[in-house]
């Protein structure tokens, strides 16, 4: 497997999915870079820090609010916390573990979100990789037109696909309001973008590598498993992460296909309901919102180095 990667990267003179990485730089370029670093304008850095602060403050305010008491949240701004610091984790305990129907019950919804998002990230990636491979490397009539059609399907408003799809789920398959219904719906809605992005990446794999395998007698299935998948791992990871985030953050699909009950519905739906109660549950909102952020943030921070590689492939050509 790694052998194939090495071969391909040797051909490209750089890691796959990345153009002109530092490693490709000559010593001279590195020298230049050093001198340039010193010249970086302090104004630019200051501007960057200002932007970073502005972008972070809203979320930070939410975090501070989530550890304040209900009365404080209601009557004073979160910044007063710096003058009168106080800590309480009651809000979190309340939304996560309080029993009884009137509790936010987020624990269960949290599990639902995971059970929805993991398969709904894996399924479309797997199917899209297969299709992207076919569009890129299997020659057939109408491949171009079909690919354009797939790309164009991004424009179909989700809202309009809800009724017909639900019709099929309930009347043909009998799975409405179950996890598989949500998985399939997300898979379908995620496919156009996944195929588009993966196609960009997979078509960039040097033809020689694939030709060599064909000459050795490998058929498409073998090429797919022995060359395409190992070489595409960075792209699969990055697009998979994005798909996971989209699914995790989705409200509309879940609303329709999960049936809206605590058995299947995800965190976002419960959060939206708590928003509906804005006023009554104001003290719960920051904690609830923050809990819904935790998983995407963990996923994002731990895997961010994969992000760009896959998404960027094919787009850097000027």
């Amino acid at each position: 497997m790694t052998e194939a990667v090495e071969k391909a990267e040797a051909k490209l003179d750089r890691p796959l999915g990345q153009r002109n990485d530092y490693t490709a730089e000559g010593a001279v370029a590195r020298q230049f870079r050093k001198s340039k670093e010193k010249l970086t304008s302090p104004w630019a850095t200051a501007a960057a820090i200002v932007i970073a602060v502005i972008w972070t403050i809203p979320t930070f305010g939410l975090l501070v609010s989530s550890i304040r008491t209900p009365t404080e949240i209601r009557t004073t701004g979160w910044w007063t916390w710096f003058v009168n610091p106080s800590f309480t984790f009651d809000n979190y305990a309340d939304v996560l573990f309080a029993s009884g129907a009137s509790s936010a019950n987020l624990g269960q919804y949290f599990v639902n979100s995971l059970v929805i998002a993991i398969p709904a990230a894996i399924f479309p990636i797997a199917i899209a990789t297969m299709a992207a491979y076919a569009f890129a490397w299997i020659k057939f009539k109408g491949a171009g037109a079909m690919f354009v059609l797939v790309f164009a399907l991004q424009i179909v408003p989700l809202q309009m696909a809800l009724v017909p799809l639900l019709q099929i789920f309930s009347q043909v398959l009998g799975i409405s309001g179950t996890f598989p219904a949500v998985w399939i719906a997300h898979t379908i809605f995620g496919l156009p973008l996944c195929i588009f992005l993966l196609h960009n990446f997979i078509s960039e794999i040097p033809g020689e590598v694939i030709e060599a395998a064909r000459v050795d007698g490998a058929n498409h299935t073998q090429i797919f498993f022995r060359i395409i998948i190992p070489l595409s791992l960075p792209a699969l990871a990055s697009i998979g992460i994005f798909q996971f985030l989209w699914v995790w953050n989705d409200l509309l699909v879940a609303l329709v296909f999960s049936g809206g009950t605590v058995d299947v519905a995800p965190l976002t739906q419960r959060l939206a309901e708590l928003v509906g109660n804005f006023g009554r549950n104001q003290e719960r909102l920051p904690a609830a919102a923050f809990i819904s952020l935790v998983v995407p943030l963990i996923v994002f921070f731990s895997l961010q180095r994969y992000f760009v590689r896959g998404l960027l492939a094919g787009s850097t050509k000027g």
Partner: peptide, 19 residues
């Protein structure tokens, strides 16, 4: 019993879809 705050909207979808 299936209770959701979105029921008033969702019933339009569910009824139209035969569900």
């Amino acid at each position: 019993y299936v209770g959701t705050q979105e029921a008033e909207t969702q019933i339009n979808v569910r009824a139209a879809a035969g569900d």
